[in-house]
């Protein structure tokens, strides 16, 4: 077997094993939280009789191991089950929300990733000069703002001072592609602000690192222009660290944006997960947790593979 292919298979197998472990950890975590679904649903109106009835109806009176195994069996046969709290079909509820999550993440990534790399290149080219300082200053400021502050700032600026966009980013089934893009404009702006700096700084650092090497000096002596040196010689050799940071940020855009979702009432997986955690709705928490874990693992595997493919020394191991 080709070493790269072997590595990919290994990584995927390891990923699946990790998913199984994650599902057990999520189960234990939710079990360890105080209160259960029945108590969370009934809240202030809980009485012992009502609690008992509700637990029996939801099957919460069965031992934890039995519940975990029956859930696992369901997932392996493609059945995510129904939510305890409102009896909605989980697969169906997740599908639209997952679509929305990916749509928002993709829209933010399409702007943020090229922009970050470009800004990183420019900063590295003019290292120590005013473009470098300006780019670093602005992006470090935006990453330092907590997301909700950035979100409120954007809402204030673009819906109240300059009423260009709507503050509530609801994406509805009947909307066209452009309508959806317009609806998510504000969260996209906020997310770009949040993820830009990390990728930009890593691009800048990786390029600067490569710029110290002998072959870059050779390229300079050949008489290439500074931008050509960066583009042709430095960037390809700086891909590996940049890709792994880009993947981390993509993963964040998929799994970590619940605050932005809440502020803009955007209907996606993060909010769906948090709602169900407060209700201790285990099947939903498990399902969404698995999806998030799968996204993380997939993106990390992808980053490893790209790093290997981009690096001849790793591609042809001795």
């Amino acid at each position: 077997m080709h070493p790269v292919l072997k590595l990919v298979v290994q990584r995927i197998a390891l990923g699946l094993l990790l998913l199984l472990a994650v599902s057990a950890v999520i189960f234990l975590g939710v079990e360890a939280l105080p209160g259960d679904t029945a108590q969370a649903i009934l809240g202030q109106s809980a009485t012992p009789v009502a609690l008992e009835n509700l637990r029996a109806e939801m099957g919460l009176d069965r031992p934890p191991l039995e519940r975990y195994l029956s859930w696992l069996g369901g997932v392996l046969t493609g059945d995510l089950g129904t939510a305890l709290s409102n009896k909605a079909d989980i697969a169906q509820s997740i599908s639209t929300r997952l679509g929305n999550t990916l749509f928002l993440a993709a829209a933010a990534a399409v702007i943020a990733v090229p922009l970050a790399i470009l800004l990183g290149l420019v900063a590295a080219r003019y290292v120590g000069g005013w473009p470098d300082k300006l780019i670093s200053g602005v992006t470090l400021t935006t990453i330092s703002l907590p997301e909700f502050v950035a979100a409120y700032f954007v809402i204030f600026l673009l819906t109240q001072v300059f009423p260009i966009f709507q503050p509530v980013s609801m994406v509805l089934p009947g909307m066209g592609f452009w309508g959806k893009l317009q609806a998510i404009a504000l969260p996209v702006i906020v997310l770009v602000m949040v993820v830009l700096a990390h990728m930009m700084r890593m691009t800048r650092a990786a390029i600067l690192n490569v710029m110290q090497s002998a072959y870059v000096e050779t390229a300079e002596l050949k008489g290439l222009s500074p931008m050509q040196v960066v583009w042709r010689h430095a960037l390809p050799n700086a891909v590996a660290p940049v890709v792994s940071v880009v993947m981390l940020n993509l993963a964040y855009l998929v799994v970590g944006v619940v605050v932005v979702e809440v502020v803009f009432s955007y209907n996606a997986l993060g909010k769906y997960l948090v709602d169900h955690v407060t209700k201790r709705d285990l099947p939903v928490v498990q399902a969404v947790g698995l999806i998030f874990a799968a996204v993380y693992i997939f993106l990390n595997v992808a980053a490893d593979i790209i790093a290997i493919v981009a690096n001849p020394r790793l591609r042809h191991p001795k």
Binding site: I155, T159, Q166, V263, F264, S265
Partner: peptide, 19 residues
């Protein structure tokens, strides 16, 4: 009926006429 749990977003929504 739009669910807008965030206080700031809800207020901004009525100010801008979205609700």
């Amino acid at each position: 009926i739009l669910t807008i749990n965030d206080d700031t977003a809800r207020t901004a929504a009525i100010q801008s006429g979205q609700v």
